[in-house]
């Protein structure tokens, strides 16, 4: 199964909610809070629905509240994806 990468996340967020408040979307953003990157909770909800459309990975709305950094978000999405494909 294709892994959901940090590049995918950056691209989808940019698409849903515009450029991040960061010099570049790379390793350095992984532990920065979404709110510090300029993305609010609705931007993250919008992102999860795009991920479902594009990757078929369903992230529950309830889980999103605790995923406050790109690293936490990526880990959760890939955990869900792995659990689903087992």
């Amino acid at each position: 199964m294709q892994r959901f990468s940090n590049d995918d996340l950056g691209r989808i967020l940019r698409d849903c909610a515009g450029e991040a408040d960061a010099p570049a979307w790379d390793e350095d953003v992984l532990d920065t809070a979404f709110t510090d990157l300029g993305y609010d909770s609705i931007a993250i909800l919008e992102t999860t629905s795009r991920i479902q459309q594009e990757f078929g990975i369903r992230v529950e709305d309830e889980a999103v509240a605790d995923l406050d950094t790109p690293r936490a978000f990526l880990e959760h999405v890939n955990d869900v994806s792995a659990a689903h494909s087992e």
Partner: peptide, 8 residues
């Protein structure tokens, strides 16, 4: 309008 606000 800032790019961030266009999708919303």
């Amino acid at each position: 309008v800032p790019k961030r606000l266009l999708p919303q």
